[in-house]
Design a protein around this nucleic acid. Structure first.
Lengths: 141, 141
DNA sequence: GATATATACTTGAGTAGTCAAATACTAATC
DNA sequence: GATTAGTATTTGACTACTCAAGTATATATC
């Protein structure tokens, strides 16, 4: 009965570490939640004229509904803004706003510090390897 | 500005994969949430007379408060039960109940199937390596 | 060009957590 | 044996999501 496979144990371990990481980042990014930080990063990378909510959802790993819910307060405080999508009236585009750029920049600095506290400097190669493994894994879910 | 370090990217990737994994497991464990499944696994391993909430919190990576909140409905439906702690009246012990054992057994089967769908069979060595890296990482948070 | 099907998004209702403060005890010190 | 400081848990108030269903638009087919 006590025979958890390596794979299941791995997912349990990841859940644990992720819980702790997100708590740490939620409290250390200067008023930006970890998920908000991630969303802003993707939006910043996307640039102008922004991206569709559903593509943002895909990048972040959340549902479209979750993205809607999260964007609402972010728009209200000027982190992001809506743009009309001429090509498809079903979807409006989301774009990072000036306030979001500022917050992201600040959050980014703090995120790097936090990450350095957690990951020993010698482990960068391992991290890279692990990242690409996770990317492959994500595709299978 | 678009210069995210490897480490920060890693944490973003893990957040994404974890979000997808927990959604998948939440919906595929036969009425057991992924976190509930994890909690029951640890409780099952702990055996009798149970463990303190704070130790369970530590194992799972959540706060004591979160554990209290999660245990309440689990106790109500007979997955776990409270035991008195003679040594320290501040804390009562939590123990897996017969209903929890049944649910865990069923969830475990499904969890193994899900994990096998996600992790290619050739990757077990990699998974093991990755798990222990995550364990080390968790200790630094 | 009407009808059916699929896609993008939002909304209602609910769950799963968080933090900070309160409670109830234990342990240490004087 | 009082007082102080520390630990385990719960609670109030809140945030961050989830799913299922609803709305609006686009695309395909006949």
């Amino acid at each position: 009965m006590e025979t958890l496979s390596t794979s299941v144990r791995f997912f349990m371990e990841m859940a644990k570490v992720q819980a702790k990481v997100s708590r740490r980042f939620d409290n250390g990014l200067g008023g930006l939640g970890f998920t908000e930080f991630i969303m802003l990063s993707h939006l910043s990378e996307a640039g102008s004229p922004g991206i569709r909510r559903i593509d943002l959802a895909e990048k972040v790993g959340l549902t479209a509904s979750g993205i809607t819910r999260l964007l609402l307060p972010m728009e209200k405080i000027g982190l992001v803004k809506k743009e009309i999508n001429k090509d498809d009236a079903r979807s409006s585009l989301v774009m990072i706003a000036p306030g979001g750029k500022r917050k992201l920049e600040e959050g980014l600095e703090r995120a790097e510090l936090l990450a350095d506290e957690i990951i020993p400097s010698g482990k960068k190669g391992k991290i890279r390897e692990l990242s690409s493994f996770l990317t492959e894994t994500g595709k299978r879910i």
